[in-house]
Design a protein around this nucleic acid. Structure first.
Lengths: 352, 352
DNA sequence: AAACAAAATGTTAGCGCTAACAATTTAGAG
DNA sequence: CTCTAAATTGTTAGCGCTAACATTTTGTTT
């Protein structure tokens, strides 16, 4: 276990380390093997003899060596980095998905960079351009609506892409999510079957929310229910969105039997506004949410909603991404996974 | 604007690009300048002549060139990456802070890697060790409680560190947050001054929540109020935590005048449970939250809480981190910024 | 013990970029 | 029009690592 001393500034084992920390070369000198062997000992221990492995691990320990992934990635062309772009993180329905995604990726040694697009295609585009400089091994986007330049950049860059939280016929690459149109139609049919006839809708002006409500209105129209009052309020969706929304509806359109909301948050705002006006839910006013936040079942009265398994979406994204990376062929181009949804009927739409 | 053709595989301007995209060398050839000039044109355009700048920009455009940050960082020793470790992202009080932090960093060209520690020191340690391999320019940790190895690694690595969302005398490096003990005492004094005497508390078993409640109990004891029933329930805090908590309290300890909760989410659960039992808030039972989520002012009855400016914390973290990086001296080692808090009195603690 | 395959280790080259310094061009002063 | 300083551009070297191939060591077979 001799140390070979030569020209380069060698970090003292117990003293000051050189700036930036020890390098492979330092470890290899201390362990008395070549730097390639150290590299192998760290990343492919099965091809290194037990004795050598011990020497290397000892040296790594001594020096507190931490491999420089930038250097490694530069050569190996694998950054072990995945970029995820979401409209928002704060108190959002995407949080579960993102957390599950990060967790699944972390278990395989991947790190996640998050970018917040604030529902803006332009911002998404800038973030994508910037992130491509890090040569991520994968990119996850929410939705299927992207600027032309974003599409082109992604196509050219040849990075595996997963579009999430939506469904369409021709994804950019891979797609994991569910159909917002189907959700809208399912809500319409569900509430119709429960006997509701006088509908109203409150949504924020987010493209997927609008599509859900639009599909619901279409379905209702097929059943001769037209002129359904509906509001598209500004992003972000907060409780006030629901409170203001209900207030406006009541003032301008009278009281509907049921209000369909584009998120549980809005629905809870509606519940709060109804409570403050002495309106009994569901008898005076039924309420339907979307997202099935953990709070939906716990508010009083409990809130009917549409359950989306954000965790499943996140895990599925990780899976399809890692599969693609592992096989290195783009055989899964065009892959679409529908994670579905469930309508959850609770007190807020229970007819007496 | 001639193209020089020589040995290396040159990407066709309109044809197939070589794998991994164009390089600086490709751009420099096409622009007819040295690669160093291209590098300067991109990162220090003010030292390059206007004519050259145009040529370079044209070539960059033609090739769709995106600089490889890994290579750049390797040489320049600046990764423009900041790692943030939070206990959780989903529906949490940290989301605002993280979002503001990411936003501030992104504006300066920094990317953010997020790690979820799930309130575990061990997990934090593993994430820190892993992330150090990317040579981040800064690390943000929630709280001041870290494993010894985490501390040592951070010290040795010499990365600027910000501990957030807490206050202590001897931070690892920099610290941005507020004192949980002071919050607890302030809540006690506030509610005492409103005439409340029969207290109860519901917290989750997160160290900072426990410290807040502990400090409150100490302060109450100073005013001869002892044997205050208090519950520490399992993480994570959900509405059910509040519902179960109140149920337990009522069964075992009778009805207090006021329930202090370690988060707004718990408090909203308490509100829901109270509503379902026909208890009127605040007259039968007053409720105090913590965090002042946007929903706190919108639920019915509106919820008294402790406001923390998550956005301010996030922005401040970004500021101290970027300042440190810019000046490259560690003059700000030991810097502590107290972002404070405010008690917000709403209907849920309004005595009739 | 020779002969070979398999296992383990070493050597070389270079990923794509930037720091540091060297060389050249341009502009300004006399 | 020369001379110098300032502005601009180029050259060299190498960041820390890994792919690909070359070499050495070990174990097995006859």
């Amino acid at each position: 276990m001799r140390e070979k001393r030569d020209q380069s500034s060698e970090p003292e084992v117990e003293g000051n380390l050189k700036p930036g920390g020890a390098t492979l070369a330092d470890v290899s000198k201390l362990a008395g093997v070549s730097s390639m062997t150290v590299s192998r000992a760290l990343h492919k221990p099965e091809v290194v003899s037990k004795k050598t492995l011990e020497k290397v691990n000892w040296a790594v320990e001594q020096l507190g060596y931490i491999p420089n992934m930038m250097a490694g990635s530069l050569m190996s062309k694998r950054s072990r980095l995945v970029a995820v772009f979401v409209p928002t993180v704060a108190h959002s329905i995407f949080a579960d998905m993102v957390q599950a995604l990060m967790h699944s990726l972390a278990r395989k040694g991947y790190h996640t960079i998050i970018g917040v697009t604030e529902y803006s295609d332009k911002q998404e585009q800038e973030l994508v351009e910037a992130i491509l400089g890090r040569r991520p091994d994968g990119i996850v986007l929410i939705g299927t609506q992207h600027s032309d330049l974003t599409r082109k950049r992604l196509q050219v860059s040849n990075v595996p892409v997963v579009e999430a939280w939506d469904m369409c016929d021709e994804p950019l690459d891979m797609l994991v999510g569910f159909s917002h149109e189907e959700v809208g139609r399912a809500i319409a049919r569900h509430l119709l079957s429960k006997g509701f006839r006088r509908f109203a809708a409150i949504s924020v002006a987010d493209p997927r929310g609008i599509r859900r409500i639009g599909a619901m209105l279409d379905e209702l129209a097929k059943h001769e229910i037209v002129d359904v009052p509906h509001l598209y309020l500004p992003i972000p969706a907060t409780l006030s969105t629901g409170r203001d929304g209900l207030r406006q509806l009541l003032e301008c359109n009278g009281r509907p039997e049921v209000v369909v909301c584009s998120s549980d948050t809005i629905a809870q705002g509606v519940l709060a506004e109804a409570a403050s006006r002495g309106l009994k839910v569901p008898n005076d006013l039924a309420v339907m949410g979307f997202g099935d936040l953990s709070s939906a079942s716990q508010v009083y009265p409990s809130l009917s909603s549409v359950r989306l398994d954000g965790q499943l979406v996140g895990e599925t994204i990780a899976k399809v991404l890692l599969d693609r990376i592992a096989q290195k062929s783009s055989a899964t181009r065009g892959l679409r996974v529908d994670t579905g949804f469930n309508i959850i009927d609770r007190e807020s739409t229970r007819r007496s």
